[in-house]
Write a protein that binds this DNA or RNA. Structure first.
Lengths: 242, 242
DNA sequence: CCTATGTTATGGTCTGACCACATTTGTGAC
DNA sequence: GTCACAAATGTGGTCAGACCATAACATAGG
């Protein structure tokens, strides 16, 4: 705690804890913070860089609204960044990321299905599932590019997780997915018959969503696990060398 | 990607990907990196600060081995830091963290039990479970301080996760635990009869470990979930206001 | 051989300046 | 009075250069 930037970090964290800084607020300017904590501006910047890296603030130049360091809440950004760097450094294997993802996401869809059983479309998961349906339709559309499909695919999965209603699970799953996004894209690029893979994925997506809407937790859980495992095996991600 | 520190970050990440930088290596000095990427040293430092924050490097002053920025692999540090800050900022509720933890940890102990069933003490999880047994003994010892108990408790859980063999799950669980560590300690401090709570926890720990050693995945899964839920309910963490 | 002292290389910090950018404010023409 | 353009302002982003604290290493002296 002797480092200058840690003093700043601790001070800002304290401000969060006592409520004097909340979502949407703007951080005082770097020069002001430097004066307040009696450190150099460069030290303040190092602290701010960390807050930026973990997805707690977003910095913008200029003046007026939108400028300065605004407090946002994007935990997934921070987790993704950390995971992605460790994957790049070969300290984390994409296959292990997928294994964890299976556990969390299978449970999430089961929870979503359970909620659907109890509350139907009126529950908090309803809008997310409707959104998922829309995405599914788009994914099944004609002449869709590989990139668009990947994007829609990721969003589809995110909506399912969101329907489960646990923000932390949501965040972690998003981070896990984005940390190996590069590998997924690369693997898909080398697929010999992408169109058929895409069709199969869409079929599986449809089945999974139907299970959730039908309120069948165990079927949803099983289909989700099978879906991820199938994709991993097909693209060969589960055998990526570390 | 126009920011100077991002150029440095991208360059270092590239070095990881092409293998010219690996675990244990030392990063070139800040002054050298500044020259190489044609940016100021302060910009290099911001990039390094990020790598440090995500647990990819560890910086030390002085000279010789141990000095400079050494590449390490502590993903949990990065994830913990990010989660902890978001919890501090009230963007993540401790209760949601616990919910996610139940899902992951229950599955982890079930996996560990399954592995035990197939391989017995000769499997990769063996050492971890033996370590867990030792920790359990220490936790049951007399005149143990609250702090020691918390520490041993956390390490006990970590060993169980490690026995499951998935490093990513391991990392995430460690991060989840440490992100709400402050709340757990605070809650334990206000417990009226801590000794009896401690006794009950030890009983539950023993039962859980026995289930794993006996190779009973479903019992382990159930006991783990019950254990965490019980503790949360007892300490009141599941009702923390966000 | 061992000790003490200087040397060197490292990250950590500070100062002060300038730039790029976006809003806000002023000012002049009409 | 109104509008368009220019200037002032405040923000993060970047740079250059200096000095400090630390820890290993090199070297001379005992």
């Amino acid at each position: 705690m002797n480092k200058a930037y840690e003093i700043v970090l601790a001070g800002i964290e304290r401000a969060f804890l006592d409520g004097s800084l909340t979502l949407g607020d703007r951080l005082p300017g770097e020069r002001i913070l430097a004066k307040r904590f009696d450190v150099a501006r460069s030290s303040v910047r190092e602290a701010i860089r960390i807050l930026d890296a973990v997805g707690l603030i977003r910095s913008g130049v200029g003046s007026g609204p939108g400028a300065g360091s605004v407090i946002v809440s994007e935990p997934a950004v921070g987790l993704s960044r950390a995971l992605k760097l460790h994957v790049s450094a070969r300290h984390i294997a994409p296959a292990d990321v997928l294994t964890t993802r299976v556990v969390l996401e299978s449970d999430a869809v089961a929870t979503a299905a359970k909620a659907q059983l109890g509350e139907g479309a009126t529950g908090p998961g309803g809008p997310h599932l409707r959104q998922a349906e829309e995405l599914l339709t788009k994914m099944g559309g004609p002449d869709i590019s590989k990139e668009s499909f990947h994007d829609l695919d990721a969003r589809f999965h995110r909506e399912l997780c969101a329907a489960a209603g646990n923000p932390v699970t949501d965040i972690i799953l998003a981070s896990l997915a984005s940390s190996i996004l590069g590998y997924v894209s690369a693997a898909a690029d080398t697929a010999e018959d992408w169109q058929s893979v895409q069709d199969e994925l869409t079929r599986q997506h449809a089945g999974l969503l139907e299970s959730i809407l039908a309120g069948d937790p165990e079927r949803a859980r099983h289909e989700c696990a099978a879906h991820i495992h199938w994709f991993a095996a097909t693209t060969g991600i589960d055998a990526v060398d570390t």
